[in-house]
Design a protein around this nucleic acid. Structure first.
Lengths: 157, 157
DNA sequence: ATACATGCAAACATTTTGCTTTGGC
DNA sequence: GCCAAAGCAAAATGTTTGCATGTAT
């Protein structure tokens, strides 16, 4: 999953590389190849958990080099294009994940400390999607399944 | 579901009445019987969809009679007590629903207009909860399943 | 050369807190 | 009377926009 881009800033294309794929999708949609685009995609692709706008803006590679507003607008575009996905995880802020076409992740969140872990499970909602789509006439359906509870560490304290 | 309290402001107790049950739970937890408590519970119980803090504060019965901060603190307490539940539905603001012990609801949200509809389905995540709880050592587990898509109206436009 | 992307600053929306007063028990 | 709850006002947090400038194409 956390497939790192093997050739930063180069123009070579490795069709297996998630980062290249993402970049291609973005370019095809008309986005320009900017530093912010590259870094945002790289960060999201290599992250093992959802990231907030603040997380991204403050990341080493971007700190003091990228503006909140720029990243915000970029994330918004990428979401609209379906390249990334925005999650509502009870926090005040929005979380973003890279969206691998056809893949899906669920999360387990501690209601005390806010820790987020990705769950690796056969999501049972997958099948329901078609049915719900048909029943309600909705298109472009996707879903979000999150589990909330108290993690062992917080339970001890 | 939307069981209305049949005897507002009275002290009679109908053990079948959701509103009475909720009130009892709150009182047992030490909350005082205030106007805000009664109205907030009534609103949430009779609502057919999740409500925001703003929704509640601006409701007829409470408008100009209740302060945002008061309702906010009350909602926070009720959530901590497990009497209501807070949902993260992608909107900027938090949504609240009354939590009937043992019951669970899933939602279908239009990503364009934000409309929220409650889904009536056999939630397949119910079973996963125990497993996840065991696997990860989390306690007090619950989950939230939401479907996002474009509703027919927005699709037409 | 022409858009699109950026940066900076300011506006917004919503949540959260401090402190004094009110009112349930 | 005591302590929780209410009310008011202000702070904090995170998102969103306007506009002038820079830059990829």
């Amino acid at each position: 999953m956390a497939h790192l881009h093997p050739h930063p800033h180069s123009r070579e294309r490795d069709p297996e590389c998630l980062h290249c794929q993402a970049l291609d999708r973005a370019r095809e949609a008309g986005l320009r190849r900017t530093r912010a685009l590259e870094e945002v995609l790289r960060l999201l692709i290599s992250a093992s958990q959802p990231l907030t706008l603040a997380n991204i803006t403050e990341a080493q590679v971007l700190a003091d080099k990228a503006d909140r507003a720029t990243i915000y607008r970029l994330l918004t575009k990428l979401e609209r294009l379906g390249i990334i996905r925005r999650l509502g995880l009870h926090d005040r802020s929005a979380y973003y994940v890279y969206h691998v076409p056809g893949e899906h992740n669920d999360y387990l969140i501690c209601t005390q400390c806010g820790q987020i872990r990705r769950l690796d499970l056969d999501c049972p909602a997958e099948e329901l999607e078609k049915q719900i789509s048909k029943d309600n006439g909705y298109s472009c359906l996707y879903h979000e399944l999150s589990f909330y509870g108290v993690c062992p560490v917080c339970a001890a304290a």
